[in-house]
């Protein structure tokens, strides 16, 4: 019998390596794929996944069942880790990027998350639900979720006033939610 996520989590909290391994095998591909979507780099994606399970194993931050599925929690950690690792990487390799860069100010806002994602944008398969949005909404969702832009970077990229970013985002996410829900009904209930 396979164990539930909660059982695996409890087990690994108690120091059971086998539970961590099982949890790892269950989510490796999902988290790796998502990390790859965020970083567009195989090396960094592996690093991100390692960071996630390292944190889980070393009990940095606790999962609270009341707050939702374990997989959602893992995805959130993965996202934060991808953001951190990409930005830190930027500092470490600044020397190389900077030499070719005529406009360092602009580049400052262009972390690898963003830069590489832009690079791959046309090759990337955008989630179906996002594709149903209008162009501006697609863009705001991508900038917000996958490029992890700040509010002011989003305003600049879309050329809209800063104060309107949040309401535009809400509107786009509202539509996105509507697009996703029919798909969700057909999905699995329990992970």
């Amino acid at each position: 019998m396979t164990r539930t996520d909660s059982e695996l989590y409890e087990g690994l909290r108690a120091g059971d390596k086998a539970c961590l391994e099982m949890l790892y095998r269950k989510y490796e591909k999902l988290l790796y794929s998502y990390a790859y979507k965020m970083t567009s780099s195989h090396e960094r994606s592996e690093e991100v996944v390692q960071d996630v399970f390292m944190k889980v194993w070393q009990k940095k931050g606790a999962y609270d069942e009341a707050k939702g599925k374990l997989s959602t929690w893992l995805i959130t950690i993965t996202r934060n880790s991808a953001i951190d690792i990409s930005r830190r990487k930027k500092i470490d390799t600044y020397e190389y990027d900077e030499r070719d860069d005529v406009n360092p100010d602009r580049d400052h806002f262009n972390s690898p998350v963003e830069k590489q994602a832009e690079h791959h944008e046309d090759r990337e398969i955008i989630n179906e639900a996002i594709q149903k949005l209008n162009e501006e909404q697609q863009r705001i969702v991508t900038l917000f979720y996958f490029k992890a832009y700040s509010q002011s970077q989003i305003a600049e990229a879309l050329d809209v006033p800063l104060g309107t970013v949040k309401s535009r985002l809400r509107l786009a996410l509202g539509h996105l939610r509507e697009n996703m829900d029919p798909a969700r009904k057909g999905g699995t209930q329990n992970e």
Partner: peptide
């Protein structure tokens, strides 16, 4: 976070190395 998790689950699968 919940919506992002759904997007993540929908993401094109990439084979880990």
């Amino acid at each position: 976070k919940a919506l992002n998790a759904e997007l993540a689950r929908d993401t094109e699968q990439v084979e880990p190395p």
